[in-house]
Design a protein around this nucleic acid. Structure first.
Length: 987
RNA sequence: GCCGGGGUGCCCGAGCCAGGUCAAAGGGGCGGGACUUAAGAUCCCGUGGCGUAGGCCUGCGUGGGUUCAAAUCCCACCCCCGGCACCA
């Protein structure tokens, strides 16, 4: 398609004009916005890019939608500020640079082959900051070349010293309010890399799942602790014995001043979880078999028995056995009983002891005490503890069954308590009394780090958290959410849920770029935490720079005054040595622009960034500075496929721009889907976009070449002209409505495709009138009227071609800042809209007849009903819509009201037909009729008979009143005429 | 598991929140026609079934229900996609 020379030519043409207009916008500072109290302001922002790699089409969507929104508002008369910054904060930039330094071949391939980074640039990109700057520039260039209407004077990065001071202020504020807390935090960790591991750092991208285990201290007679790890502490009441792997190696160790026996593998893990562990000696698992331990809760003495399913690499390597409620335990017990003699001999135990162990039921399910595990194991015919997979799945089933429907049995102190509650209570009770402690373990283990080391859990001490779990803060966030307009409304629920989910969240790390915690400089504020109120910074940074205010003067008092209006200007001025005018100017700029009227982002940021955005605004700013609206959009697919690095099906912005003009890229993405849906970027779509742009361009050019129209009197307009003009007006109004709700795809469809079709339809109807000189002038007038509006309407979507066309019609200034062609409802003459609907429907009907009969029409006769009949219809429709009557009730009611005998008879004869017909009138037509929009069927068709003939491909259309005595009506069809539905005869 | 979103004709995709020309917008593909030396582009017609007069029948994941009337409302079920955090 792109090889077609004509397409190629048009594409080249577009590219040429695009750089031209981009240059002009820049030169004339069209998008630089300063406070202007005479205009309503609109401050629009979008999640800033993270420059650890170039951008691809997925990013283009969010920014393009934002740009359309910005441009639309600008044309609607708002003073629009659309700024952009760059997010350097965090570790991915470091990781990227390190991987390049290591010569990671996958990454090198991705960068050079997919993203088109020149090979010779790579060495430079091993420096994180240079890497960020490099991609920053590339991304910025892409944005400029895509025609985004950004005020670049306000650009900043999150490592700028001025920004650091701003974030310091934010964190001091949060801390003042008690929203920053410190504590410990368990995290998946690679002991070899000495780093936390997330999904991206593991082999096969597995997300390591950390779970909290309760470790209950059973004790030998000498007080040595055998710690057993469990997810179900409430089952402590059903313990019959402990399990130890006889073949594993255990150690006796000093753990936090107690003597513990744990598996050798557990030693390192405990150390990473802040236990002090000192190994005293080693023992074999088998040496522990047969010993008795004391259950700290029930004070029962239970034996230690051997089980092969016990994994020494899991938690402490010791397990408590609850055969009634744990399938593994029951299976192991069964195994043991089967070879009780052998085992007894081997470990010197009384065989009776083994034989005497029976599952102890401690949980009721649906009010019946049940040995759930026993039931399941028997039901599924599990033969031995070595059937690991089956037992794991049974464990899950038992777990959820008992969690959901289980209640503690009468033989426990928690009788009647649900399993769910009992679990918490027992845990709480045991830990507070020192009978238990907490150990974390990776539950989906083994998970391996990319370096092949097994991932473990580490507890980070003294971690700093943002406490999104704080109930008071949550209430503020909920309030903030209630006040904000969410587009599209469907995702509001997700925000609501997120607010409820959120708990405290680590907000600082030891590595990465960013701002240091002001009260503890070892920590760097993490990226999702320094990006929550930065929109405010856009409003002031350019002034900080213009006035050459050094970062050290950007004290908390400075921001308190600028952003919150706290403090005395004179005093502050004296203290900082900044003139009061300057301080006041900056304060004014902030108060003019803030709050943010629209915040855009992809839907991935709803459960984190966007929700944090609400939280932080609610915490720091007064209500009048809270966000006004949030706009969320879906992904971009490539030929229906999800874009992914591994598939290599990523189209970087740079490459897209090499192939296609910006307007085409924009239009393709914008028209592919409505906001929340995934937009498929396909060759097909590209083709369609180029196609419609070129058709539109050719058409408008043709109109322009006809020359400017001279003066035309409104009386010279024909019925057809007026229909066309009013249809266009209505269309523009609809586009406006769609755009105001950001139904961009719908707006695009209408602005390009519907508009083009309207114009083409009109042209085909009037083309043969062009020979008449006067008529030609009028048509030109109509067309110029329409293209003037048309060009404005497409400007938000494809601004470059719009500017070019605008200059072709000698539009004033830039179309980018021209007025939107506002259409007030009063300006639309709906009688023409109704007439158009009427004609369309009639044509449809006639075509249906033609099709059904197979006749080729030469003459078409049309018989129209009378005005009084239309009035009857109007009444019926009115009753249906206002009094909620059924069609038949409404018709009957109207019939009863008719005084005129003729009319009554007319309706009476047609009752059944009329009722059936009423229901079938399309919505738009129905509304227009109810509103009393006038239409004279006879004159509409009379005036339009020539056009009708054209539309129907027949030689003549003859219109009669249905009761015209002179009418030609061989088939007697005229009596079938109903209001707005004339009778037809074809020959 | 928890929480969200969704299942529409050959395909993509509107419509469903405010039930009524909804056989279901708009594309795409396919078939036919016009134009052309031809192809492409463009335009017209058709695209569930039946029908020689604007009609009828079947239909919007499955099964029920409410209603004069349901793709649209209610209930149950099945299936698909996304998020679940310290990662930007």
């Amino acid at each position: 398609m792109l090889h077609d020379p004509r397409v190629r030519g048009f594409v080249e043409y577009l590219r040429k004009i695009e750089s031209k207009w981009q240059r002009k916008w820049m030169e004339e500072r069209v998008f630089e916005a300063d406070p202007d109290p005479s205009k309503p302001k609109f401050f629009i922002t979008v999640a800033f890019p993270y420059p650890n790699a170039p951008q691809h089409l997925g990013h283009v969507r969010t920014y393009s939608i934002t740009d359309v929104h910005a441009r639309y508002r600008r044309m609607k008369g708002y003073n629009v500020l659309f700024p952009m910054g760059f997010h350097y904060t965090g570790t991915p930039i470091l990781a990227m640079a390190r991987r390049i330094a290591r010569g990671d071949s996958d990454l090198v391939w991705l960068l050079t082959e997919v993203y088109g980074v020149p090979k010779e640039k790579l060495p430079e990109l091993t420096d994180p900051l240079k890497l960020a700057r490099y991609f920053h520039q590339e991304i910025k260039e892409g944005m400029i070349r895509l025609g985004y209407s950004i005020d670049w004077r306000r650009e900043f990065t999150t490592v700028d010293p001025e920004f650091n001071k701003f974030i310091e202020w934010q964190f001091l504020k949060l801390r003042e309010k008690g929203f920053i807390v410190s504590g410990t935090y368990p995290i998946p960790y690679c002991p070899s890399c000495e780093n936390p591991v997330g999904m991206h750092d593991t082999e096969d991208d597995v997300e390591p799942e950390v779970a909290e285990f309760t470790v209950i201290k059973f004790r030998l007679e000498d007080g040595t602790v055998l710690p057993v790890a469990t997810l179900r502490p409430e089952t402590i009441f059903g313990v019959t014995n402990l399990w130890i792997n006889p073949d594993a190696t255990y150690v006796v160790a000093d753990v936090n001043q107690e003597r513990w026996i744990i598996s050798r593998e557990a030693v390192e893990k405990l150390k990473h979880q802040n236990y002090s562990v000192e190994i005293l000696s080693e023992v074999r698992g088998s040496d522990l078999i047969g010993k008795f331990v004391l259950n700290p809760v029930t004070n029962e003495k239970v034996p230690v028995l051997p089980a092969t399913f016990v994994d020494p690499d899991f938690a402490t390597g010791i397990v408590m056995s609850v055969p009634a409620h744990a399938p593994f335990d029951y299976a192991a017990l069964k195994d043991l009983k089967q070879r009780s003699r052998e085992v007894a001999e081997k470990y010197g135990l009384p065989e009776e002891l083994i034989k005497s162990i029976e599952p102890k039921i401690i949980i009721k399910v649906d009010s019946t005490p049940k040995a759930t595990a026993v039931e399941y194991v028997e039901k599924y015919g599990i033969k031995s503890q070595s059937e690991k997979l089956a037992l794991e799945s049974l464990t899950r089933e038992v777990y959820s069954l008992e969690l959901l429907r289980g209640v503690m049995h009468d033989n426990t102190p928690y009788a009647g308590t649900s399993v769910k509650d009992a679990r918490e209570k027992v845990k709480e009770d045991l830990t507070s009394r020192g009978y238990a402690t907490i150990v974390y373990e990776i539950v989906n283990r083994p998970v391996f780090c990319r370096c092949k080391t097994k991932v473990i859990v580490k507890i980070l001490p003294d971690q700093w958290f943002i406490d999104y779990g704080n109930e008071k803060w949550k209430e503020l966030a909920r309030e903030c959410l209630r006040k904000v307009n969410i587009i599209p409304p469907e995702i509001r629920k997700e925000f609501e849920n997120t607010i409820e989910w959120l708990r405290r969240r680590p907000c600082a790390r030891k590595r990465g770029l960013g701002t240091k915690l002001p009260w503890d400089r070892r920590w760097v504020i993490e990226s999702l935490s320094d990006s929550t109120i930065y929109m405010a910074f856009y409003t002031i940074i350019h002034l900080i720079r213009k006035n050459r205010i050094p970062p050290e003067k950007l004290t908390p008092e400075f921001f308190d005054y600028i952003l919150l209006g706290i403090g005395d200007v004179e005093e502050l001025s004296k203290k900082l040595g900044i003139p009061t005018e300057v301080l006041e100017e900056i304060r004014r700029e902030f108060t003019y622009w803030y709050p943010c009227d629209a915040r855009h982002s992809g839907k991935d940021l709803v459960p984190n960034h966007l929700t944090f955005y609400l939280f932080n605004h609610a915490a720091i700013f007064p209500e009048d500075k809270w966000p006004r609206s949030i706009v969320v959009n879906g992904w971009v697919l490539l030929e229906k496929q999800k874009m992914s690095k591994s598939k290599g099906n990523i189209i970087p912005v740079r490459k897209a721009l090499e192939l296609l003009p910006a307007d085409v890229i924009r239009l393709t993405i914008l028209s592919a889907a409505e906001l929340m849906q995934d937009a498929d970027f396909s060759l097909e779509g590209v083709k369609t976009s180029i196609d419609i742009l070129s058709k539109m361009y050719t058409l408008i050019r043709k109109v322009v070449e006809m020359g400017r129209p001279g003066p035309v009197k409104s009386t010279e307009l024909t019925y057809c002209d007026k229909i066309f003009i009013n249809k266009v007006k209505l269309l523009i109004k609809e586009i406006d409505e769609s755009l105001s709700r950001l139904r961009i795809r719908d707006a695009v469809q209408k602005a390009y495709f519907s508009m083009y079709n309207f114009v083409m339809d009109y042209l085909s109807l009037v083309e043969d009138e062009m020979s008449d000189e006067r008529r030609r002038e009028v048509i030109k007038y109509v067309l110029w009227y329409v293209i003037d509006k048309w060009i404005r309407v497409i400007a938000p979507f494809t601004p470059h071609i719009a500017e070019e066309l605008w200059s072709m019609i000698d539009g004033e200034g830039f179309v980018s800042i021209a007025r939107w062609p506002e259409v007030r409802d009063e300006e639309i003459d709906y009688s023409y809209v109704l007439a158009d609907e009427y004609i369309k429907r009639l044509v449809d009907d006639i075509s249906a007849v033609v099709r059904a009969t197979g006749k080729k029409p030469s003459r078409v006769f049309i018989y129209v009903a009378k005005r009084e009949h239309l009035e009857l219809l109007r009444k019926v429709l009115h009753y249906i819509s206002t009094e909620k009557l059924s069609a038949s009730e409404a018709v009957r009611k109207v019939l009863s009201e008719v005084k005129d005998r003729e009319l009554k008879k007319w309706l009476g004869e047609r009752m059944k037909k009329f009722i059936e017909y009423v229901v079938t009138i399309p919505e738009l037509m129905r509304d227009l009729v109810i509103r009393g929009v006038p239409i004279d069927e006879y004159s509409v068709l009379k005036e339009g008979s020539k056009y009708l003939a054209k539309l129907l491909h027949c030689s003549e259309v003859i219109v009669y009143h249905y009761d015209d005595p002179e009418r030609y009506d061989p088939a007697g069809r005229s009596k079938l005429a109903l209001p707005l539905r004339p009778a037809i005869y074809i020959e």
